[in-house]
Structures are given as structure tokens and as C-alpha cells.
Computed example of a mutant assay.
Amino acid sequence: MIEAVLPGDVDDPAAPSGGNVYDRRVCARLDVRETAIPGTWPRPDAHARAELADTLAAFPDDTTVLLDGLVACGVPEIVVPEAGRLRLAVLVHLALADETGLEPSLAAELDRKEREVLRAASAVIATSPAAARQLERHHGLGKVHVVTPGVDPAPLARGTDGVSRLLCVASVTPRKGHDLLVEALAAVDDLSWHCVCVGPLRDTVHTERIRELISHHGLGDRVELTGPLTGKPLDEAYATADLFVLPSRAETYGMVVTEALARGIPVLASAVPDALGDGGLLVPPGALTSELRRWLTDGEHRDDLRAKARRRRAELSTWDETARAMNEVLATLRA
């Protein structure tokens, strides 16, 4: 039996995230026993720390344990002492210090703690080739395994008018770049468009900043912050989208990009080379304006991006393939 230790909010519909979706899809396909531990990971309080310590201590020697990196990487004093007797595989969705907006001293502390945990683990797993290479270089690791996310099959999006309805699916945090998107949209406010931004609004300070920016540019009736959507409402948001936009400053993979591509939606994005492939336009963060204007004014360009999205759609892997790849990694620890 494989033990999986996950964040406590893994199934919280108010807190959807790529990491949570990945954990849920993969664990549902593996022979694992899950333990979800609530806490403000990667900086948990004393109660969460004690629950994690007790959980790991209760596992018999030589147990294979799949640890979500958000839970594991900030508490080496709990995880590392167990590494000598447990077969620990740490799944890194995002390097802790890569979260945008951290104070430099906190980023350095989280980076140090993550390095200590990953060097002690029996296996380290990243969700993209680029993320694996970065972890190997930055933390001085040996081989980091790559298990890329799958995607659920989906029907082709019908869109709205083929041009003007833009969709962004991302938590409203500094790393996701909603401020960059609003500034770019303000620069094309002479054209017809409406942008729907779907995602949790838990960072209330940053969310208020984005609302103020929208108001400052007079875009209150054109940029919509819906909060988190799941199930049919999220499916409908994708189904009516003409263009998917993700302005992130940093990503390890970008699962929402493949969710858009699975529906044949053209994509304009930053920081997601592995997810996007040749399926859309990859631009530097903050360089959206000219490409948005081109999308909104050039029909031949739109046709080209739609064709690219549909070709990439045919190449996407499934969650069953992801689970098989994860099982192969974990099997090396049990051998």
C-alpha cells in the first residue's frame, strides 16, 4: 500500500488549484491510502505540524509515501528524520520560493528548507521537463522524475462570436499576472471584447488591487472576476471562450492551458512552454498587448491559432497515462 499525504484543501471547491486537481486525478487512479492534513502550508501552525509528524511516524518502516511538496518542503525538521526509514517521494508542483510577492528573506528561508527536504527524499517528481531541470540545477539534485499532468477529454468549445470573449482561469494572486492582463486590456479598449477571469479570490489584498485597477481603467463592465467555478459552470466558461489568456509570471506546467487546448480554444500565455507546446502563442510576461490587438483584428491570424490549438488537442495525454507514469516512479522505490 502506498501512502499519500496531501494538503487538507485537496477537495475544497472553494480552493481549486492545479496542484489539487493533479493530486486528486492521480490518487484516484493509484492504489493509495490518502491522508489530507489541513494547514497553512508551507508555513503550518503547531497543530498541523504535529499532525504531519504523527502521520509520518505511524507509517511502518519501508512504507512508500507520496508527499505533496506544498506539505513536505517547508518542514524539513519533520520530514528529513523520517527519510531514513520511509521511502519518500516528494511531488513538487511549484518551487516554494517561486511564489510571487514573497519577501526576499522568506523566499530564501523556504528555498533552504525545500533543498533540505528534496535532497533527503528517495525520489523527487516534477510536473514538467523545465521544472525538473530547474530543480536539478538549483538544488543540486540527481535525477528528478517528470510526470506531466493529463487532461480530461472535452468537446470542442463553441465560442461566442469567434473573437471577443476572452477567458482566464487562475487564482487571483501576484504570480498569475492579472494586473498585467488588465493593463494589456486597457491598451486595447478601443476594440470589442469581454474578459471573464475565473479563480479563487483568497488573496484579498491583491484582489482589491486588481479591482481598483479595473476601475481605474474604466473596465468594470468588461472584466469580470467570477471567483472559483467548478463542474458545469466551469465547463460553460470554457465552452463560450473564443481565446484563452494566461498572463502568469511563473508556472511549472499550467494545467489550465491544456484544459483549454482540450476544447480546441486558442491560447495566448506566458511561462507555460511545456503545456502549450506548439498549440498557441507563448509571450513574455507583460507582453500581451500587441498579441491581443492582433487576435482582435486579424482574422487570418485567428484561424491559424485555432488550427494550432486543434493540432495540439490531438497530442494531449490522459490522466490514465499520468497515473501509469507515477506508478512506475513509485515502483522503483518498492523494488
Rank of each mutant, 00 (worst) to 15 (best):
A132M: 10
L213Y: 09
G199N: 11
R293H: 05
G18T: 15
G231Y: 06
H138K: 14
L91I: 13
G254L: 09
E224F: 04
R310Q: 09
A107N: 10
G8A: 09
L141F: 08
G142P: 10
A121M: 05
D68N: 04
R311H: 14
G84V: 09
A50C: 03
L219P: 10
S215Y: 05
L166R: 07
E51K: 13
G264V: 11
R302E: 11
L52K: 02
A250Q: 15
C27D: 07
T127G: 00
P228L: 07
A108N: 11
T322N: 02
G218V: 07
R33D: 02
G19R: 11
A241I: 02
E51S: 15
E315F: 10
A108D: 15
L180D: 14
T322W: 01
D45E: 04
H145L: 07
A121S: 08
E300I: 12
L86R: 12
T322H: 05
V283E: 00
V245E: 08
V32E: 01
P155D: 00
F244W: 01
P38V: 13
A14W: 06
D189W: 00
A58V: 02
A250S: 15
A95T: 14
E3N: 06
V80A: 01
V75E: 10
T63D: 01
E328H: 11
